[in-house]
């Protein structure tokens, strides 16, 4: 995932399979390309773009971290540390979450 602007990005993906590698029956490369494109372009991206539009529309809103967000929370913590080490300000996406208590959640989602 590579930033383009604050509200756009390039999403590069590589889909590797260890089955059907002879590429003669299902799944062929064409099958995989069609399936993955459909899933990402009609399911993931519309939801995330709608989320982005809402974040812009509502302005200063904060997330309410849930137990199911623990992987995201771990990753954001590493990113927060990396930005601090580099002397960079936190990007808005990390601030929006961090301000709402991410740093006080444990790995299993419980509040410290």
């Amino acid at each position: 995932m590579t930033p383009e602007t604050a509200t756009s990005c390039h999403y590069f993906m590589n889909w590797t399979r260890d089955f059907g590698i002879e590429n003669v029956g299902y799944p062929t490369d064409d099958d995989v390309f069609a399936e993955q494109s459909a899933v990402i372009m009609t399911e993931d991206i519309p939801m995330v773009e709608a989320q982005q539009e809402n974040i812009v529309a509502f302005g200063a809103v904060h997330d309410a971290p849930a137990k199911q967000d623990v992987f995201i929370i771990h990753v954001h913590r590493v990113l927060v540390d990396a930005h601090r080490r580099a002397g960079h300000p936190l990007p808005p996406e990390l601030q929006r979450v961090a301000h709402n208590g991410v740093s006080t959640l444990t790995a299993d989602g419980a509040k410290l």
Partner: peptide, 30 residues
């Protein structure tokens, strides 16, 4: 991607959203 026993396909998508939102989507199994 360089493993002879596997087959890789490459994609590029353009997303009108912050890169972290899209990355979080992939991290979020729920």
């Amino acid at each position: 991607t360089a493993n002879a026993g596997r087959r890789s396909i490459y994609f590029r998508f353009y997303v009108k959203a912050n890169f972290q939102l899209m990355a979080d989507n992939l991290l979020d199994d729920a």
